[in-house]
Design a protein around this nucleic acid. Sequence first.
DNA 1: GCTGGGAGAGGCTTA
DNA 2: TAAGCCTTTCCCAGC
Lengths: 246, 246
Amino acid sequence: MHLEEAKQLIESAVSRRELCIAIGGCSVEYFGRAASKLAHGKRMLLIKGDGSFGIHQNRKLNAVNYMIGAQISCSLDKHLLVQALKTKPKESMKVFFDSVEFLQSFPMEEKEDLRLFGSEKELSDTLMNDLSFIEEGLVPMNREEWMRRGFADIVARDSKGCNVVVEVKRRQADYHAVQQLERYMRQIENRKGAKARGILLAPSIGDNARKLLEQYGLEFARLDFEISNPAAKIKGVEKKQKTLFG
Amino acid sequence: MHLEEAKQLIESAVSRRELCIAIGGCSVEYFGRAASKLAHGKRMLLIKGDGSFGIHQNRKLNAVNYMIGAQISCSLDKHLLVQALKTKPKESMKVFFDSVEFLQSFPMEEKEDLRLFGSEKELSDTLMNDLSFIEEGLVPMNREEWMRRGFADIVARDSKGCNVVVEVKRRQADYHAVQQLERYMRQIENRKGAKARGILLAPSIGDNARKLLEQYGLEFARLDFEISNPAAKIKGVEKKQKTLFG
DNA sequence: GCTGGGAGAGGCTTA
DNA sequence: TAAGCCTTTCCCAGC
C-alpha cells in the first residue's frame, strides 16, 4: 500500500475515532518517562477511539510500546511517521513505517460495553427467593426490608436466629466492600442490640480484602455464576471460612 | 463471512502461530480468578503466537477480557465459539461470535524484537569522549581504567578533584542499580581512601529507587536520548539533586 | 516451576 | 485534576 494512501486512511480513521489497525515494517521510538527504540520489524499498530495507541508484536498480551490519550498525527517524508504526543507528562512516541502491508479501520459502537456479572434482576430474584445456597436455614427478611436496603445489602436471619448481613458484589470484592460491610454491621448491631454475622457475597475477593475480612471476623461466600449458561443462574458457593460465630 | 470459514481460518492461524485479528458481533464470558460476562457487541479478538488472547473494545489501551498462554480451540454450533482454556489456575474464556465482519491472520517474524536504548557503542564513545554534559569539569579516567570497568561503570574526577563513580543504565534505573552503585562506591572509597561521589546515569529512575538513592546520598543524572535522531546522540541531562558533596 | 518486586504499570474512585 | 488504591494486574528476574 502506498504510504500516502496509508497516511490519509489513518488520519481519517483517527478523526472519526474508529478502531484502526495498521500492519507493516516500522521502527519505533519512545521518549518520556523512559526512553526506548525498537529496531525495524514487522508490527501492528492499534489505534482506538479514545486515543489509545499501541504497538503490538506477535507475543505478549499488551503492547510493547504505547501511549494513552495522546494527540495523534501523521506526516510523510521518506517514511510514514505516525506520532503520538502528550503533555503532562511530556511524552512522545513515533512509529516510522517504511511499508504498510495492511491497513483498515472499523467504526465501532459508541456505547460503553456493559460488563455484567450475572443479571442484576436475576440475582435479586434468586437471592430473594433463596439464600440457602449460602448456608442451610438462612432466610432473607421480608421484601419491605429488602427493598429499603436496596439491591446489594440483604438482612437475613440464620437457623439460630442470628441476624446476618449479606453484602453482594457482582464484581470481585475489594477492600472497600469489606469496609462497607463492616460499617453496615456496626449499624445493625447497634439497632438490633445483638451480635450479627456479616457475609460478603461476590464472585471472588482480592487478597487484601480477604485479609481485612478475616481481621474483622467476617465471612466470604463465593457467588458462582454458571456463565456457560446465558441465563446466568446462580449455581452454588464455595465453602465458607471459619468465623467467630461458627 | 461464513462462520464455518471463520472457524477454519482461526484454527489455521492458531496452529501456525500467526497474529490473528477477528472483528465481529460477539458476547464474552470469562470465569477463573473472577467471573464476568460481556453482553453482545462488536469487538475485536486478537490472538497472538504465544497464545495471548484478548478481547478489545474501541477504548482502553488493554484488552477488556483476556487470557495468557492459553489453549485455544474453536467450535461451531449456532455461534462460532472461540474458547481459551488454561489450567493452574483453572480459567476459561469463551467468545461467542454470531457474525464475523473481518478476519485475517498475519505471519510475523519469529525473532524477538530488540529494544534498544541507544546504541551501546555510541553511548560508550560519547561518554568516554565527554562527560561534561553531566556537569562541568567532570572528566573520565584514562581508557585503561575505563575498559577494565567495562561499559556501565565509569570512574571520573570532578572539577574539585573528587572521585566520581558513574553507573550507567540504558533502561530506567531500578532499586538494584542503586544498590550496585552503592556497593561499588564503598569499594572505591576503601581503595582510594577518600570520599567519593556516585552518580546514577539513566533515562529515568523509579520512585523506590529514587528514595533509596536519596538515603544513600547519591545523585541521579538523566540520560536524555535524542531519539528523533536515529543516531541516538546524547543531548543533555536534567538538573541533579543536591547531595552531601555539593 | 514458583515467587517476589517493579512498571513508561493501567484504570477506577474519591477528594 | 490529583492522589491513593487495587488489579483476572503483566512481566521479568531470581531461586
